[in-house]
């Protein structure tokens, strides 16, 4: 997982994995959720997902939430993870607003 620690910008993979466990989910459900919510644009490889979950758990942004059906490990977002997701959403809003303004200026 490569994030700009100084600016706090998350990669899209990290952000979507974080969002996917706002409702507790296991690994396969996370992969399906991300693919569905991005319209098939982002398809997570198992190795990438494993790395993202390990890193997020290490940061304390997600935590195990017991086992689901078939003894699959379920993850949930923590309070710190929710705050990180909200910060990222605000950052993306600012990026989108700035980009829109710049492109409009370019058209004028």
């Amino acid at each position: 997982m490569r994030d700009n620690a100084k600016g706090g910008a998350l990669t899209e993979v990290t952000f979507f994995v974080l969002l996917s466990v706002v409702t507790p989910r296991h690994g396969y459900a996370i992969m399906q959720f991300v693919e569905e919510r991005t319209g098939g644009r982002l398809v997570l490889g198992a190795g990438t997902l494993y790395g993202a979950l390990s890193a997020l758990e290490e940061k304390g942004w997600i935590a195990p939430a017991g086992e689901g059906g078939g003894r699959k490990r379920v993850y949930r977002i923590t309070q710190a993870g929710r705050q990180a997701a909200e910060r990222e959403l605000e950052r993306l809003r600012q990026v989108a607003a700035a980009a829109e303004e710049i492109l409009k200026e370019g058209q004028a």
Binding site: R2, T11, V13, V43, G45, A46, G47, T48, G51
Partner: peptide, 19 residues
Amino acid sequence: IVEKENDGAPFQLHTTWAD
């Protein structure tokens, strides 16, 4: 060695260029 059922999609364990 990792095996999956063939769903027609390419089988890649790593999604991002960095990974």
